[in-house]
Design a protein around this nucleic acid. Sequence first.
RNA 1: GCGCCCGUGGCGGAAUGGUAGACGCUGCAGACUUAAAAUCUGUUGUCCGUAAGGACGUGCCGGUUCAAGUCCGGCCGGGCGCACCA
Length: 852
Amino acid sequence: MSENTRYNIKETEAKWQKVWEERGAFTVTEDSSKEKYYVLAMLPYPSGRIHVGHVRNYTLSDVVARYRKAQGYNVLNPMGWDAMGLPAENAAMERGAHPKDWTYENIAQMKAQLLSMGLAIDWSREVATCDPSYYKHQQKMFLDLYKNDLAYRKESVVNWDPVDNTVLANEQVVDGKGWRTGAPVERRKLNQWFFKITDYAEDLLNAIDGLERWPEKVRIMQRNWIGKSKGAQFRFNFTTSDDTVDVYTTRPDTLFGASFVALAADHPLAKQLAGGKEGFDDFIQQCQSTGTSEEAIEKAEKLGFDTGHKVAHPFIEGQELPVYLANFILMDYGTGAIFGCPGHDERDFAFATKYGLDILPVIDSGGEELPYVGPGKIINSDFLDGLSVEDGIAAAIKKLEEIGAGKGVTNFRLRDWGAVRQRYWGCPIPVVYRESDGACIPVPADQLPVELPMDINYDEPGNPLDRHPTWKHTTCPETGAPAIRETDTMDTFVDSSWYYLRYLDAQNDEEAFSKKATDYWGAVDQYIGGVEHAVLHLLYSRFWTRALKACGYPIPADEPFSGLFTQGMVTHATFEDADGKWVFPAEVEKKDDGWAKIADGSKVTIGAVVKMSKSKKNVIDPQDIIDTYGADAARLFILSDSPPDRDLEWSEAGIEGAWKYINKLHRSLMDVKDTLPAKEAAMPKAFSESALKLRRAVHQTIKAVEDEIEDFHMNKSVAKIRELSNDLISFVPKDDADKWVLREGWEALTILINPMTPHLAEELWAELGHDQILAETDWPKAEESLLENDTVTIGVQVNGKVRATITLSPNAPKEEAEKMALADPGVQKAIGDGQIKKVIVVPGRIVNVVAG
RNA sequence: GCGCCCGUGGCGGAAUGGUAGACGCUGCAGACUUAAAAUCUGUUGUCCGUAAGGACGUGCCGGUUCAAGUCCGGCCGGGCGCACCA
C-alpha cells in the first residue's frame, strides 16, 4: 500500500470540518417549508477538558442530528456552557485566577476539542450561562416569578460551614463535617429564597404519564421524588393543657393501636411543652448536632424526650396518650407531628420498645411477627373491626370528619426549591433591601442586568460579594434611600432550567426568547444526557417551564423535553502499583504475565472495572484518542460495543478495532472505485442472482439501520453496517450490472455510516464522484420489493428440537413446507418409529413435528 | 427497608414466543514477508467422537406452550435510585 492512498485521518477530518464550517452546513433558521427536529445534549460544565462521557453524549446526539437531517428535517442541534458554579471559585482560591478568566479559557479549550469531534452543531447559537447577556434574562425571570408569588423568602434550616462562612449542600457534608474545611457543620436558620415548585406538585406528577418517550426509570424516580401520599390530618386535644396538636398519617385505620404522640424537636409546641424540663436542652442540642445529610440521619439512633404531657385519644373515651419529642420526626413533612402505632410501623416499634410503650396489634397479621405492615383484617378497633386496611382508612377518615377532629388530606414529599447559594460565581439576584425598613425591592427591569463585580478577592473565606467594599451598597430604586443588594446568587440549576429555550433565540438581546422562535421550534424532540440528572435538573426544568408560562412567557409546550434518552456510564479497568497507588491506563502496558508500568517495567495489578473517575485514575483523555485514531474511530467505537443505555467499558482493543475498520473501508473502496460505473449510469434491466442477493442486502440494511437508530440501538445499526460492508468487500462483479449494484451498495453504505463516522463518509462520498457534500444529501429509500428474500431457510424441529433446515419460498404453502420437512432424512431419523401426531407450520419461521 | 434494572461463549453483546450466540474483540492455524508490523484466508460455546454425527447449553427451581433466553410464579447473585416522609 503506497503512502498516498492510505487514509490520512488528521488531514481528512480537518478538511471536512472546515468544509462544514464554511458552508454553514448545520446553521439553521426557522424554515416553515421543513418539519423541525430539536435534538439537545445536556450542556457541559466547562471544567477545562472534555471527558469520555462527553464524547459518548455528543456522539449520540450527533448521530440523531445527522440522521434526522438526512431524513429531511430542519435539525437544531445547539451547544452551550453551564458556566457558573463552585469549581471556578475553587480555582480562584487555589490558583488566583479570576473565575471569569478561568471559565472562558476552559470554554475556549473545550470548544476546540468539541470541534475536533466533527459535531453537526449550530455554533451560532452557542451560549454561556455566566455571560450577562444570558443571565440578565434570568434576572428578569426571577423578578417575574417574584411578582407572581413563585419566588419568596423564608427562614429555613441549613448546613452551615463556620470556617468558610457558607451554606453547604447536603452532598457537601461528609460525616457531619464540611467537605473542604473539615469543620463540624452547624445547623443554622437563615433567610433564604425559595421557588414555589410545590405549587406544581400535582401537575408535575400527573404530567409524567404523558412523557411516553422518557425512560420508565426516570419517570419512576420523579414520581418517588414528588412523593404524593394520601392520608388523614387530625387534631389531638391535650388533657394536661389547653393546647391542641395536628398530626398527619397515611394509616388512620391503625388509630386504635396508637400508644404515643411524637413531635419534631423544632415543633412550635416543643419548647412550650417541655422547655425548662431537665434534659430538654441536651435533647435539643443532640437533635441539632445531627447533620441533615441522609447518611447522618441513617446512623442516628431513635431518641425521645417525654414531655410529661398527655393527649386524649379521639376515638376512645378516657384514653390518654403520652406526648414525646422525637428526633426522627421531620418538621417540614406533614404537620411535624405523628401518632405512633408500634404494632404496625417499624420506626414506632423501635421507639416504643426503647421507651417501654404499649404495642397493640390492630391488624390481623396472620401469625407474622410485629411490627406487621402488610394487608389484613382490622381487629381490636371497635367500629373498624373486620374491615380491610383500605376500607378502614376510609371509615376512620369519615369518623374523624364527623366528630370534627380532622379530614382526609394529600401530602407531598417535594419541598420548595432552595434557590440560592452564598457564592460569588452565580447569577446575581436582582433585589435590594432598603436599609431603613428592610423592605425587599426588585431592581427595575430596565436596570438589568445586575452584573457581578469583577474586582473581587478570595483572601478570606466566604462570599466575596458579601465583603465587597462598594458593590452591595446601592440605593432603593423607589425612594433613592440607602439600600443593600442581595449578595446570594442563584443556584446554577436555575441556569440550566431554561437554556434550551435560549438556544432558540440566542442572539435576541431584547427578550429571553421570542414567540416566533418558540412557535417554530417547540419542545425538545430528543434530549440526551446522563441519568444522574434524572431528578433535580429534569424536574427543575419542568417546573421552570411551567412557571415561565404562568408569568406570560411564550412557552410552546407544557413539557420541555418530549423525548429523553439517558446514556450509561463509561467504565474502565483500574490499575494499582506495588505501593497501592492508582496508575493511569496510559502508563501501563500488557505483558505476557500481566501488566507493568511502561516507564520502569514494575508490576501493576489490574482491578475492578468501574466508572471512570479522576480519583482512581482510570480515565482516558479523549483528546489523546482523537489525536491518535481520529474522531471517527472514537465515535464508532463508542457506538458499536454496547447499547447506549448501558455502561460502556472503554478498551484499547476496541478503539483499535474501530480504527482498523475505518481504514479497511477506505482501502476497499479505493481498490474498486475505478471499476465502478459513473454515478449517472442507468439501472440495468436484469441482475445476476448474486447481484440480486446483494441488492436485497443493501436495501434491507437501509431499513434495519433506520429502525435501529430510531430505537437508540446504535450498536445494532453498526453491526448491520459491518455486515453489509463484509458483503460488499467480498462481492466479485462479473458484468456491468454487477458493477452497478456494487456502486449502489457503496453509496448506500456511505450514507448509512455518515451519522457515525461523518468524516470518513464525506471522504468516501467524494471518492464516489459526488460534488454535493454528504451532510446535505438525503437518506436513501429502501425499496419495498427488495426487503423480502425469495427464499428463506427455516428450522425443522421434531418435538421441539431442531433436526434439520429446509430452504423454500417464504410464501410457500404450508403443505409444501410440511412435505419438505417430512422428506428430510434427518427429520425421518429423529421421528424413527414414532407416530406423527401433529405438524405445526409457521410460514417463513419454523416447522415443528410432534411425534411419539 | 422500598422501588427499578440486569444475569446468554474467554470478553462486549445479537436473537417480532420459532435454526441461541448476529456483529465485533481475543485466541489458534495458515498465506504474504529475510523478519516483524500491517493485511488477507480459515477457525473459535462445552463435552464425546478420527469422522459422519450425537449429547449438553442462556444464574437456580417450577409452570404455561407444539415450541421459552424471551411469558408467569418462587429463589439466588449483581447494579442503580430513594430512604427516619408518618
